[in-house]
Design a protein around this nucleic acid. Sequence first.
DNA 1: CTATACTTTCAGAAGTTACTGAAAGAAAGA
DNA 2: TCTTTCTTTCAGTAACTTCTGAAAGTATAG
Lengths: 192, 192
Amino acid sequence: MTALALPATTPLTQVHPQLRLVQDDFIRKWGEMGQIWGINRTMAEIHALLYISGTPLCMDDVMERLHISRGNSSMSLRSLCEWGIIRRSHRRGERREYFESLSDVWEMFSIIAAERKRREMDPVLETIKNCIKQLDKETIGKLAGDEAVKRTRERLDGMEEFMSVTNKVFQQFVGNAKSGLNKVVKVLLKAL
Amino acid sequence: MTALALPATTPLTQVHPQLRLVQDDFIRKWGEMGQIWGINRTMAEIHALLYISGTPLCMDDVMERLHISRGNSSMSLRSLCEWGIIRRSHRRGERREYFESLSDVWEMFSIIAAERKRREMDPVLETIKNCIKQLDKETIGKLAGDEAVKRTRERLDGMEEFMSVTNKVFQQFVGNAKSGLNKVVKVLLKAL
DNA sequence: CTATACTTTCAGAAGTTACTGAAAGAAAGA
DNA sequence: TCTTTCTTTCAGTAACTTCTGAAAGTATAG
């Protein structure tokens, strides 16, 4: 029969109550904001907890601290790993897995922005380009001179220009970590 | 007994089938993208329809074209008006109301960005500043030198820097229409 | 092989958001 | 005034998302 069972949670979780209050505040707000980035509340809270703790935590730490189920923790942690904004981390001689957040906020933002651009903006731009192509085909035919077609064409052009530029700006942010982004931002702010 | 009833929909809705197909494509995709801007699918589709049509449409036009209920149309149109990205427009001698989209995409983006910044980013930045203040109070007291407090403080600082800069960049985009934004963007792209 | 320690999966429950359609409201004209 | 035309509201419902917890799965140690 076995020796002393390990405590389910890391000692690191047991922070001073005052510190905990401050952290909870941050976690709550960050969770609300998660939706901006297209991440659900729980996932955002888990991420906030790992980020603010600044040290690896295990699944039981997360469950206990945020009062969420094992299943939810497991899914959300996996999904955050897939996003690439947290990482698994292992301790020698220990069986269980730990998770920690990237520490560079700029890098995290880059990763999220890149993914959202790819999934959400690129397809729209493609659709718009396609619409323009389609419309041009019609214009050569019997719809030439049609007022409504003209108006639609103008609107599509306006939208395409907008999306293209936005896409390029995003592109610049993506793949640069802190130093690069800071440069970009400084240039931008100085120019205004 | 009344004279000839007006047709429920504007003649303008009756676009050529080919044009309609192209417009539908755009509307569908724009609806999907709405979620990026924090606008729900139907609202985004209504907006897309008004934008792509380039001409004022009435509620029945919208209902018929998108197959949505009167209630939903009414709520969504109101909400789009509140956002400021579509406007009511009236025709002399006609009772019913028409709606049209802003035509300048850059202006629409500005409006949306301003609102989201105000509602979603500003409160987070405030919370973070508050957390830092709280933490500093504790640090003076009995938690001075606590490792966990130090780590948390570092993380909060990193996040604050990020949010502040992001906020400033947003600020620049807000309140500028096409010309202003284009200048900003050109400067940015050239600098890279 | 069996026991233990831990993780993942997934069906269903709970919670949330979006939509409908009928009824009430408002404005204009007769 | 009453009728007509159009808009808004809102209770109920449908569709979707998130969460739970128990069961199955996996890896390691004895």
